[in-house]
Amino acid sequence: MSKLVYLQEVVTLSLDRQRCMGCTMCVIVCPQAVFSMVDGRAKIASRDHCMECGACAKNCPVEAISVKAGVGCAEAVLNRMLGRKSGSCCCLLEDEEGSLPGPEVGGRGGCC
């Protein structure tokens, strides 16, 4: 599956290694094996595999990881550009402030 890598050098993921306390949660939750442990601290090993799902940042107890989480879905981006409130998909983007759309407007679907 090494062939399936998305665009290079685009993701918003960053890790403050100084803050890391080595709990390994990011290694556990990341579905793309982006992190590895080096000298007892997490390290971003394969940055371009990151899909910005946000699981690592959400599960980091010391907030050493930051990422602008979102769903990599063209339909969602189109819906947002066209100002649509719902699509054929579960696809709606968060507001820029990061607030989630309520279940009545987004959230329903199963495409992804």
Binding site: L4, V5, Y6, L7, V10, V11, T12, P31, Q32, H49, C50, M51, E52, K68, A69, G70, V71, G72, C73, A74, E75, A76, V77, C89, C91, L93, C111, C112
Partner: peptide, 12 residues
């Protein structure tokens, strides 16, 4: 991209 399992929003 929406159905795929490895695309990032920044990339899309």
């Amino acid at each position: 991209t929406g159905a795929s399992t490895y695309t990032s929003l920044s990339g899309v």
